[in-house]
């Protein structure tokens, strides 16, 4: 299992990490409100969608902040969350 510290290290491993705040991504597929598989050039990643928003396939989204995510076992991690661009 990955700890929040390990996770942050993972994200920072690649200096050009796709999850940098402000990055614009295209949604490849979304499950209507919780997660989206996104793409920027050749890179694909799954990110959580900001609560209360949805994004559909083909939509442009922006990584806006690190969202506090509570894993099923209660641990808290911070994942970059997506905000749809209207």
């Amino acid at each position: 299992m990955i700890s929040p510290t390990q996770q942050n290290r993972l994200w920072q491993k690649d200096k050009a990490f796709i999850g940098k705040s402000g990055t614009i991504l295209h949604v490849t597929t979304s499950n209507s409100g919780t997660w989206a598989l996104t793409q920027l050039e050749a890179k694909k990643h799954i990110f959580p969608i900001m609560p209360g928003y949805t994004c559909a396939e083909g939509q442009r989204v922006k990584i806006i902040m690190m969202r506090k995510n509570i894993l099923p076992d209660g641990r808290i991690v911070h994942a970059p969350a997506l905000m749809p661009l209207l």
Partner: peptide, 21 residues
Amino acid sequence: TEAESSTGITFGGLYALIAQA
């Protein structure tokens, strides 16, 4: 993968993304 599990997604969510596609 670590990159996917660290977002908090579960297998229900992963298969939901496949189903949407």
